[in-house]
Design a protein around this nucleic acid. Sequence first.
RNA 1: CGGGGCGUAGCUCAGCUUGGCUAGAGCACAUGGUUUGGGACCAUGGGGUCGGAGGUUCAAAUCCUCUCGCCCCGACCA
Length: 475
Amino acid sequence: MKGITKRKDDYSKWYNDIISQADMAEHSPVKGCMVIKPYGYAIWENIRNILDKMFKETGHENLYFPLFIPESFIRKEADHVEGFAPHLAVVTHGGGKKLEENLIVRPTSEAIICSTYAKWVKSYRDLPLLYNQWANVVRWEMRTRLFLRTTEFLWQEGHTVHGSCEEAEEETLKMLEVYRSCAEDYMAISVIKGLKSESEKFAGALRTYSIEAMMQDKKALQSGTSHNLGQNFAKVFNIQYQNKQGHLEYAWQTSWGVSTRLIGALIMSHSDDMGLVLPPKMAPIHIVIIPIYKTLEELSDIMEVCRKIKEDIGIKYIVKIDDRDTEKPGAKFFEWEKKGVPIRVEVGPKDLKAKEAVLVRRDLNTKSRVSLETLTVSIEELLMDIQKTLLEKHRKFREENTFSIDNYGDFKNLYEGEEGFALCSWCGNPECEAKIQEETKATIRALPMDGREEAGVCIYCGKTSKVKAIFAKAY
RNA sequence: CGGGGCGUAGCUCAGCUUGGCUAGAGCACAUGGUUUGGGACCAUGGGGUCGGAGGUUCAAAUCCUCUCGCCCCGACCA
């Protein structure tokens, strides 16, 4: 295909080609930043709309905190500072003068939000606080990639406050489930829910959970995180409330987020060597109709049918008629394929005569002829099938590339060869984890939440272990 | 921060080794015409401080010095 590097030739290049050929984003003049173009942004809007609805259904409200955070606020929480210090963008001047105190461009908003929550929380009656914000954040990164890791990115961050650890834990898991649902039920990305190891958890959190997805190069992509912050931030920022007995207690908190990285996950989960592939629920355009004609008379008849189709199916789906006269049909086919539009409808003189249309599904690239009378139903069924097929295909790919491994030799061989996820017993010792990373580059992506109580012996040191961990090379 | 690659038209690049007339090609763009079931063709046209600064020279895209930036691979990270 013109313009797109094949996955097997150069996976990174393929990824970049998909983005540029689908016109989703481009590099900005500032290193590591990106311009998200309308087609890419439309996908983000879809993700945002889905999550925003689910957040509200689970009782959350949106608010907004400022971009700038006083440096001293960030410094309050030791682990937090340590985690973010190398990634901070610092503002030293404003209005032409040196500032009395440096401002940090938010890398995440725990510091500013918690210091404000301290004023808002007085009584158990104020709890829970269930807030979320949609924002941009900046983390200075050494190496960046469009969507997957950019210096500035868009995300949402939920920040909640609760009256007990149990309630915070429940919230943490509830939002993790929201993320799983968004990934699987809408983005058709099959994920593993799991607990992060100590070394991989969010700096300052009690526990971090994540959803992990396997990309087509068999590497893991952390696609969403949910943290039980315990009382760590409450103690530092002094968020205290009076309980029913009148005693002061530190509050329990959570935070959770997903970012534009999800778009990277979407790209790498489904796309092929012809371009982007989008599940219908993520597609900015569901159906593109391409009229095929020789004469102007033909065109007028064909356009009439196209408009009728758009009118019928447009009630539920986003339909585009590509009636440009400057491109030949073939060129249009390629263009919309590269953009991952799930269904293409071709209407030409032959179809008109037979009272049919040609349907082409992007995911399998198969054609079928369908009667105009039943077209609406056929398209709807096809869209649902594409959505389902993509998820199943993605799940199957991960399952086929996930291996239960119980000796370290096999483990090493895996990461010297084909790669994939390795499900192994792990004793819980961070030193084993570190050694494994050093020797194989694979890290613990998560301790999967289903069946993690299984007993065994540690893949590295051979001591008894209670948990299974998913290892993989990660983005 | 290390290794590699690269900055020439909107994009991909040629030209540089061996300095020399008006800096080129393909794609894209604009106009007109012919086309249209898998990336059309013809004609005409617009578009460049050759990344930047300095130097050598009669003469620099080309040689020298410095500098800025980007991409890829690693260490670090969502």
